[in-house]
Design a protein around this nucleic acid. Structure first.
Lengths: 186, 186
DNA sequence: ACCTGAACACCGTTCAAGT
DNA sequence: ACCTGAACACCGTTCAAGT
């Protein structure tokens, strides 16, 4: 069970990706309180301190998780359908990312520095798309992002209930239609 | 600095209200991580264990804070203006409660059991009001409540900036108008 | 470069002992 | 009834020591 003291053989050590996977698992199971550096190390069969060779901090760990989850949201977004349709695509994929790991999103809210990376690109893209529609584009960017957050966090209470998740997802799309209706039909 | 060992003189001990006030202060200043039973006791000039005579738990403490904050939301709501206006009043006051202590709301999300009390009454009232408007009243109750949560939590990032708080408050009302517009003008 | 072990300054909570 | 002190099982993180 316990490893030898020195540098492990090539391929025997923990990888950063393995750490992130295990951390996300703990977060999904028990939320922010369940993700401890010590529990994470135990799950990987390693000493807590060895994690610090791959991750700066617990905060850095959350930041890395956030970057990995939200990093793919903007990929494959095409704007051929016009700005309203582009906004709808970005928000729907962002919402889907949030509800995949709502506990991570909640943890990130408590660690505002973790928001800086990937989610910044998403809000920038939304800002640009909205700027083509209304002079109050900053206001509407906030409304739409906040609504996605609130709807996504509600999934924490729906843990595991697939039917309820589907209903909430449908509700989100309906609310989005209402909010985007202001800017004309697409 | 240190108190004697036995039962304190009448009026010398800590009160439950003093505990709640101090806890809310710690939460506002440093968020969930800042609210520790030990820091709370230190602020009150008391041993950590003495808190457990007034509060069952850290979770019970959060629940009591949530009850106190949200307990007043429904008071003085009149339904003379019809259901749409009633819904608007309830949500506006709920949102105002959330943004008064956004860190508390965030902490409660991580402790779902704390939601049970006062916030249940609020959602029940909204459910009843919405039932008069649409068969999809459960769907719309979720949309409206989630939107209030997401908008309220965004205030965490606006810490202290009064102008930004006002702008976000105005944005919330605008979004609410849009969402409630479906159910007819009031 | 990457791991371990011991250590430091924290947590929440229980339990027995005081008055 | 209400407080203390000691104790237990946890935290995150640093630092020196290993290979």
């Amino acid at each position: 069970m316990t490893r030898p003291r020195g540098r492990p053989a090539r391929g025997q050590g923990v990888t950063r990706d393995a750490i992130l996977d295990a951390a996300l698992g703990l977060l999904d199971e028990d939320g922010d309180a369940g993700l401890t550096m010590r529990a994470l190390a135990a799950r990987l069969g390693v000493t807590p301190m060895s994690l610090y060779h791959h991750v700066t901090d617990r905060a850095g760990l959350l930041r890395a998780l956030s970057d990995r989850l939200y990093g793919g949201v903007l990929q494959g977004i095409d704007e051929a359908g016009g700005p309203v349709e582009g906004i709808r695509m970005v928000l729907t994929r962002y919402y889907d990312a949030v509800i995949t790991h709502p506990q991570l999103t909640l943890a990130i809210f408590a660690e505002p520095a973790a928001f800086a990376g990937a989610s910044r690109e998403i809000t920038d893209r939304l800002t640009a798309l909205l700027a083509a529609l209304t002079p109050a584009y900053l206001l509407w960017r906030d409304i739409l992002v906040d609504h996605a957050h609130g709807s996504g966090l509600a999934l924490i209470a729906a843990r595991g209930d697939a039917a309820r998740v589907d209903a909430l997802r449908a509700a989100y799309r309906q609310a989005l239609d209402c909010l985007l209706g202001q800017f004309g039909e697409s």
